[in-house]
Amino acid sequence: MIAPELTLFADSNRPDGASVGRIKRSSASEQIHSALRERIISLELEPGRNLSRQEIATHYGVSQTPVRDAMLKLEEEGLLLIFPQSKTEVSKINVAHARETQFLRLSVELEVARTIAAMADKSCLSTAREALSLQHAAIGAGDIGRFARLDHLFHQALCGAAGAANLWELITSRSGHIDRLRNLNLPDPGKPANIIHYHGLILKALEAGDMSAAEAAVRAHLSGTLSQMKEIKSRHPDYFAPSER
């Protein structure tokens, strides 16, 4: 039986990658923020691309007010650059910001691993186990986009299991730059298999209560993308600010 969190996740996944279209006005700003953020993180809206507030408002069938609010929140997260009375564009990838967020995430996830490894009852890992199972299926189906979202869910589930769900929300709000780097790295040969390998190692260590092995697996897993920075930049130089190329 699929856990409720995973059912909701799976149902929200559009296999054709199509836009969600018109949305309810009751939470327009939040929904537009989520929709635009997903498109930026997935690189559908690539770094440096200009965005029109009017076009976005027309697309979603809302006024420009919720679009403005959503854009301001995305600017706070470092994903948009808003030039008043001029233009709004998707920010270039900031490597320093990515490294800072990685430091925060590693610190949290190491403590998460220690906490779960010390637990006697491992039933809290059920959602993470199922996320890993669904990742295997996503790779078998060649659905890289769904695989990436399940990767996010795997780590979210671990934070939730350790009672640190709010910290995962903090990490997510700051992860725009590092997540874009990961999505640039994800199509590389062997990368999805590598992610699944480390997810399996992490779960195995946590289930065995092996704190040392869990910490080692978390460190190795989270270091992968930044270690490939040179290669990623060489393939996508226009996605980075000139000073970072």
Rank of each mutant, 00 (worst) to 15 (best):
S126P: 09
S34K: 14
I40K: 00
A162Y: 00
E89F: 12
L72P: 07
A35V: 13
I144D: 08
L74R: 01
R49P: 09
G142S: 10
Q85N: 11
T88A: 05
H59I: 08
E75D: 12
T127K: 01
V67K: 01
A128S: 13
H59W: 15
H59F: 14
R114D: 06
I171E: 02
L132K: 04
L81P: 06
E169P: 08
S107H: 07
M119R: 03
I144C: 10
W168M: 07
T172C: 10
D151F: 03
H155W: 13
A117I: 06
E75P: 06
Q135T: 04
G61F: 15
R39V: 09
A120L: 08
L80A: 05
P66A: 02
Q156P: 09
G140L: 06
S29H: 10
E44S: 11
R105T: 07
M119I: 06
A118L: 10
F83G: 07
F154H: 02
F103N: 12
T127R: 01
I116S: 01
S34Q: 15
K122H: 14
G61N: 09
G142K: 09
A137E: 12
L45W: 05
S133N: 11
L74G: 01
E109M: 10
F147E: 01
R68P: 06
D69Q: 09
L132M: 14
R114Y: 06
R146H: 11
D143F: 06
V108Q: 01
I139P: 04
Q102R: 09
G142T: 10
N94L: 08
D121F: 07
R129D: 03
P66T: 03
T115A: 02
D69W: 03
D151G: 06
N166H: 12
V112I: 09
L153W: 03
A35T: 10
A28V: 06
V67A: 04
R49M: 15
E75N: 08
D143M: 09
A157N: 03
A113N: 02
A98N: 00
A117V: 10
L72E: 10
L110D: 01
T127W: 01
A57G: 05
V62C: 04
A131T: 09
I93R: 02
A137T: 11
E55R: 14
L79M: 15
S107N: 07
A128N: 03
T127Y: 02
L150M: 12
I139H: 05
D69N: 14
F83I: 10
L80M: 13
A57R: 00
C124D: 05
R37T: 05
H59Y: 15
S29N: 11
K122I: 07
E169C: 14
S27H: 13
E77N: 08
